[in-house]
Structure formats: structure tokens, C-alpha cells
Amino acid sequence: MVLIWHEGALGDLLISRLALGALREKHPHEEIVLFARSEARYLLLKAGLVDQAYPTSLAVAQRFKNVARLYLFAQRPEAFSFLNPLAQTMVSVSTRPLRPQHLALQELEALGFWPSRLALFLQENKAMGRKVILHPGSGGRFKCAPPSAWRTLGALLKKEGFQISFLLGPAEKDLLKEFASEETILSEDLEGAVEQLNKAPFFIGHDSGLSHLAAALGLYTFCLFGPTAWWHWAPFGYTVAMVKRCQCLEKGLDPHHCPQPCLSEIRAEELARIFLDLSTTARWNHHLPKASGYNPGFVDNWGSVRKKAVEPQEAVVAAEEPRDSGKSGVPELGIQVVEVGEEHFPKG
């Protein structure tokens, strides 16, 4: 039996689906039990990445004493020494970026095992048509474009024949008044959000857990980045990261305290143009490969999955952009990058 303990929130847990897929392949005959703080654990169970799933409860975990191995995913693994008695061997995987690469790839390297295929999707998205879900919120409002930009974006896409719905989570109830005249859905829980996302082939959002959820469910996901590092955190799958370069990020400044937030002057017309250009081109493979089990993999014209040599981890400046991918994206994760707007400089 193998235990996995994951302390991350929604986006963090979904980023780790590649690592969980690798552990499924590495331990094919072992029962894998997941303890995760995020409700998304049930999606990983449903996808077959794990065999059992529970909240992060030590009382429940103690039922599984003396297992062969425990994998701990946490920002500060040293704070979880109380888990040591549960397993003969504990492997720690940091969920904090340690080098200029995507966190999902960093986690795979920490495991020392590169799977034959990457578990980019938890399901096949079968939604058809021209429905687009817009998510104008995020856990950190400093990462968000203003509601007016989102309303304009929705109006522009409607003119092009798309059906638009705005989706809000429980922490974004204050935005309801901003979209009172729009088709707006308030999802109180993860299950409700999944239900809504499964009705659409397209999603546009910020750097947020909901964007990671959309990408994991197989939606064509357009994600707006500014003061956070896309090269660490971008959702992956069929993904376009629309990146506004931000000097707050590149100079290591705290974007929370910038008087003029990075995305405050984003132009909805530019976002609409990018969406219209890329959502209707042959860049997307509209037919996921048919494969049994949890791992449909990722094989299309972004490039096939390749094995990669495992390199030792080393501490680096978190905001350093990776030299190998530069502005193009991370092809092995299905991430394409498009720069938007003018570079943001801190004010005040």
C-alpha cells in the first residue's frame, strides 16, 4: 500500500495530477490511498489515479500504519514529521517552486520517475458548440482584470456567435452585482463547478484554481496572467496563457501593494482577438486519444510526450523566467504563451 498526503488547495492538487499519474505507473500493483485538503480528491479517485481518497485527517490516516511508502506533497515538508510513523519510507515533494520550470515538472523530477505518458486530463470533454465560460474572479484579486473588461469581453464574443456564461465561486459573491445583467452562475461547491464546466468546450479565466479545474477536465482554457509566474503555475492541457509582462513580478516586488494592479488596463478587444484566432485554428486537436483507464495522455500537434532525464533540484530565484521555454510556452504540457498589452511597471 502507498499513501499520498497532499496539503495544497484546488489548483495545487490538480497540478500534482502528473505526479499522481507517475506514482500510479510506478506502483501498478499497490493500492494508492490519497489524503488531500482539496475537494478535488474525488476527481482523482474517479479518474483512477488513486484507489481511495480522504480529507487530510491524521485520525483516519493512522488506520494505515506501517505502509511501505508515503509521499508527502507540501510547501514545507519538514512541518509534517508527525506523519513519519505511518510509513517505512517517506518521500517529500515540495509544492513550492524551487527552480525556473513548471511546478508539475518539478514534482516529477522530485519523484525521480518519468512516466511513459503524462496524465494531462482527468476526463474527455465531450461538450460541443460555442459555449464559453468566463471566470472573472480569483483567490487573489490583485491577479484579476476589472469586471468591466470581462463584461466587454463577453459582449464581443456574443457578437461573434458564442454563448457566454459567467461562473463565480463562493468567495466571489461580491462580484454578483457586477454581472447582474449577464447570465451568471454562482457555484457554491466543486461539484457544481464541474457540472457547469462540463457543459462547455471553452473557458477563459485568471490564474486561479478554477482555471486549473477547467484545463484538467479537458476544456480549451485561456488563462490571463500578470503578476504571477505563468512558467510555474499555468494550467496545462489545451491551454493558452495570455501573459502581460509585469515588472512587479520580475523585480521581486509585492504586487499586492502596487497602487495600479498589473491587469487593471487590460484591453478586452485584444483578449477577444486572441481567443477568436486560436479557438478556430488547427492548433487544437479536437479528438483526445481513446485510451483505457486514468491516463488518456497528450498526443497531438503540440508534440508527443517524451521521456526526460531527471535532474537534481536546486534553489533559484522564483521569478526567474525559464530560458528554455522563453515566451513560447511549455510544449510537453500543452501550454502556449501569447503576450498581451504593454509591460506593466509599478506605480507609486
Rank of each mutant, 00 (worst) to 15 (best):
10 L>P: 00
57 S>H: 04
84 N>L: 15
225 F>E: 13
14 L>Y: 01
252 G>T: 00
273 R>G: 05
289 P>V: 06
168 L>I: 13
29 H>C: 04
8 G>M: 02
211 S>V: 14
310 V>S: 11
186 L>Y: 12
304 S>A: 12
258 C>Y: 00
125 N>Q: 07
131 K>T: 15
109 E>H: 12
308 K>M: 14
96 R>W: 08
316 V>Q: 14
244 K>R: 06
300 D>C: 11
78 E>N: 12
299 V>F: 15
318 A>V: 13
333 L>D: 08
235 P>T: 02
286 H>A: 10
94 S>V: 12
173 K>I: 14
84 N>Q: 15
342 E>R: 13
148 S>T: 15
257 H>W: 02
22 A>I: 02
138 S>C: 12
189 D>V: 10
332 E>C: 08
8 G>S: 05
197 L>D: 01
31 E>A: 10
117 R>E: 02
203 F>V: 09
334 G>C: 09
148 S>A: 15
182 E>M: 15
313 Q>Y: 03
99 R>K: 10
80 F>K: 09
209 G>L: 01
35 F>Y: 14
305 V>I: 06
289 P>I: 05
218 G>L: 09
109 E>G: 10
34 L>G: 09
346 P>E: 03
218 G>V: 08
173 K>M: 13
287 H>N: 11
302 W>D: 08
223 C>A: 15
49 L>S: 01
252 G>C: 00
107 E>R: 02
257 H>V: 07
325 S>V: 11
10 L>T: 00
15 I>Y: 01
51 D>R: 00
323 R>V: 05
336 Q>V: 13
339 E>Q: 15
134 L>H: 06
309 A>V: 14
337 V>R: 13
11 G>D: 00
161 G>S: 08
150 W>H: 10
108 L>S: 02
17 R>V: 00
149 A>Q: 03
97 P>I: 05
217 L>A: 08
283 R>E: 15
183 E>I: 13
226 G>D: 05
157 L>G: 11
161 G>P: 06
159 K>T: 07
318 A>F: 09
174 D>N: 15
18 L>F: 00
329 G>R: 07
329 G>V: 12
191 E>C: 10
85 P>Y: 00
316 V>F: 11
167 L>H: 09
73 F>K: 07
2 V>A: 05
64 F>V: 07
9 A>V: 00
263 L>T: 02
83 L>H: 04
303 G>S: 02
72 L>G: 09
285 N>V: 07
60 V>T: 14
143 K>Q: 09
262 C>T: 03
56 T>Y: 07
318 A>D: 08
217 L>I: 09
86 L>S: 01
298 F>D: 07
144 C>T: 13
304 S>L: 11
341 G>S: 03
47 A>T: 06
